[in-house]
Nucleic acid binder design. Structure first.
Lengths: 138, 138
DNA sequence: CTTGACCCTGAAGTTACTACAGAGTGTCTA
DNA sequence: TAGACACTCTGTAGTAACTTCAGGGTCAAG
């Protein structure tokens, strides 16, 4: 199949595939007489792995490591496990950060009650003008 | 004060401040005889507002809008409220996304029990090789 | 007068793509 | 057979929010 069809099957664009090839995430593939890239099922499988990992929020570097750990099908999957574990840790950390942010934002919102006061008297702006220690909001 | 001191007070680097100036988030300031930027308390206040907003996860574009809404201290703060409300929405959406991701990652992890099997038999890799609809994991 | 800490500018690197511009290829229809 | 149209090619530049670097200048202390 050509790049457009591969893209459709993988749920991404042709540009993305060319980008992955350029950066070594996908191997260079064969070309037709007209210099079009030509793909088969194995390419689709690899691309799907990459796209699934991206959908799970992994960075391309993490995926590269995962592909390396997968390259020998007889190797054990301890490395894969570790990479996944590390990524779960990243996501958990980001989740905690965001939850904390959201909490602060809700407190901040509560400081302005009707939106009709002058900006300089608004509790939101006053809080945002404070020291970087945003915790004084609480 | 000079840029290094301002940076220290605001909890960022001098490069960040120069970047904010270049992109119009901070005004161009006066210079000393030796061409050093020179700042006072009002600059610090504005920079803190910017950094606080960044700490709350706002994009520079959002902050630019907020600064514009704040520029007239007699205007009412309805616009400020709206901007904050929109940002709270963004964070909530991102939180929901991340929570969903984390759920999928935990399911994925459960598919490999001991890390000693061959990569090609590993449930993790099998799942990652599937269709982009990662929900088949569940 | 030299050392070291600080500052200056301008350009390039980072991530993961996306969006061109300008050209060639392939198929279908008139 | 010619034209229209969809698709593909390469290479470059743009995005966000900085960070890093090269190659300088400034200033106070010893």
């Amino acid at each position: 199949m050509k790049i457009g069809e591969l893209a459709k099957h993988a749920g991404c664009t042709a540009e993305t595939i060319r980008f992955y090839e350029r950066t070594g995430l996908l191997p260079k593939t064969s070309r037709t007489a007209g210099n079009y890239r030509f793909y088969d099922e194995s390419h689709l499988e690899r691309l799907r792995l990459v796209r699934n990992c991206r959908a799970l929020g992994m960075a391309l570097g993490e995926i590269r490591a995962l592909l390396a750990a997968t390259s020998d099908p007889h190797a054990d999957c301890a490395t894969v496990d570790q990479l996944l574990e590390a990524h779960i840790g990243h996501v958990a950390a980001r989740l905690a950060e965001l939850a904390h942010l959201q909490e602060q934002l809700l407190v901040l919102r509560a400081r302005c009650h009707d939106g009709t006061q002058a900006v300089r008297d608004c509790g939101i702006i006053q809080a945002l003008n404070g020291t970087p220690d945003i915790c004084h909001l609480m």
